[in-house]
């Protein structure tokens, strides 16, 4: 989506595992697969008191970025992101997919950017990704007159900084850890 380069550096206990190989600017294929299939993720932000606050959200993934979106009705989390852009996205519910259950659990830490210059239209660029995960969104949007404020939305773009993969969903074992190093274009 945006021109950039990134490189990945493994620091976890299975750093020679070739399943974590990745292309520049992209997350490893198995992480992408989890993010593309997951219908729910826990999005954690840092609140004003320094404690994390977590919200279940739909994770969307495109070209190395995680995209979340929020209605202005539920926008307090966005205010937290604006105050502190350090966030994490965790996929923990292995059954929350439209297909096969997920095999691995994934947590992505990263830096978030809020896109709310135009809350009426800007979010619609992620509509195809959203509809792919939630087909009911299309007819729901067609009847947006019923809930107009729900369709005033804010985009949250997350640039991954560190990825943790719990193989087989086993969080009692150390995760594979992948550090992402961003280079400005």
């Amino acid at each position: 989506m945006f021109a950039r380069e990134a490189s990945a550096r493994r620091v976890g206990h299975l750093c020679l595992n070739d399943r974590m190989d990745t292309l520049p600017g992209r997350l490893p294929g198995r992480v992408e697969a989890v993010l593309n299939a997951a219908l729910v993720a826990e999005f954690s932000v840092i609140g004003p008191d320094g404690l994390p606050i977590t919200h279940p959200m739909i994770p969307l993934y495109d070209d190395g970025r995680i995209w979340l979106h929020s209605s202005i009705l539920f926008s307090r989390k966005v205010e937290h992101v604006r105050r502190n852009p350090r966030v994490s996205v965790a996929v923990t519910d292995l059954g929350a997919t439209h297909g096969e259950p997920l095999r691995d659990r994934v947590t992505v830490q990263g830096d978030a950017t809020v896109h709310d210059g135009d809350v009426h239209e800007e979010w619609q660029r992620i509509m195809p990704l959203w509809v792919a995960k939630e087909p009911i969104v299309r007819p729901f949007y067609a009847k947006r007159v019923a809930l107009p404020l729900f369709w005033e939305r804010i985009l949250i773009e997350i640039v991954p900084r560190r990825v943790l993969v719990w193989e087989g969903g086993r969080t009692d074992r150390p995760p594979e850890v992948l550090e992402m190093a961003e280079t400005a274009p």
Binding site: S44, V45, T54, V87, S88, A90, R162, T171
Partner: peptide, 16 residues
């Protein structure tokens, strides 16, 4: 899902 803040100041979460 347990969420804490790591040494770098990022939330860190995992299933439990």
């Amino acid at each position: 899902v347990l969420v804490t803040v790591d040494a770098d100041g990022y939330p860190l979460s995992a299933a439990a």
